[in-house]
Design a protein around this nucleic acid. Structure first.
Lengths: 67, 67, 67, 67
DNA sequence: GTGGTCTAGACCACT
DNA sequence: GTGGTCTAGACCACC
């Protein structure tokens, strides 16, 4: 498995890191180990952030901002 | 939940990855029904893919083929 | 039957025209189910369109969207 | 309406003319006044040929020959 | 601005 | 050879 932490450029706000992760997954054809994106809870644990942070990342994604 | 740490098959076609992402956004209520998605051109720029790739993802989505 | 002599709306998108043609072939039993169609590249050359146009027609056909 | 007889190059065998007609219809975005190709009977009357001639044209079409 | 459509190239894996 | 996928351009009509 790929070590995402070292593959990805350091980003300050964690929710940006999450967005970055998802974008990278798509660009590198690495997206989606199973049938769905990881649950918010899992991503939260993964990034060691609160679920609200993950939620914010999803909001940005669906809003199409951070363009 | 999915174990990200172990080896799992990645989705090869990018348009499928994009479909998955959007579906996940919907499932997580990050994308309410009726709410318009970001423009194809924006998403294409965002994901660093061609517009036709995004377009195809949308086509499949609206066709309701994959789930 | 249709009166060809009078002004009637033409099908604009070529891929729809191709779909129609193939469906007609099927309806007229000129194309039995299970029988493989000519190659995309051949049809493209034949109709003087790009392969992607033929490809799209096939996609729609197999998706069963139009009828 | 377009005068096909003058638009199309003169072709000897009539079934080839019929094939040519259909190809031209697609290329010129003129295909399909209604929902289906004209019935064999109609085409036969149109071209002043026997239905078997029309039938042969369809066969050629679906076979993808005359490439 | 947007999506819909089309073209013309390319690379890949399959057989 | 084939289809599947992707890119990079273009033109159009709609708003």
């Amino acid at each position: 498995m790929i070590n995402w932490a070292q593959e990805l450029p350091a980003i300050k706000p964690k929710y940006l890191a999450i967005i970055q992760l998802i974008k990278s997954l798509i660009q590198n054809n690495q997206l989606l180990p199973g049938q769905r994106l990881p649950a918010e809870r899992s991503l939260a644990r993964w990034f060691n952030v609160d679920r609200s942070t993950v939620s914010r990342a999803f909001d940005e994604l669906s809003a199409g901002s951070t363009l």
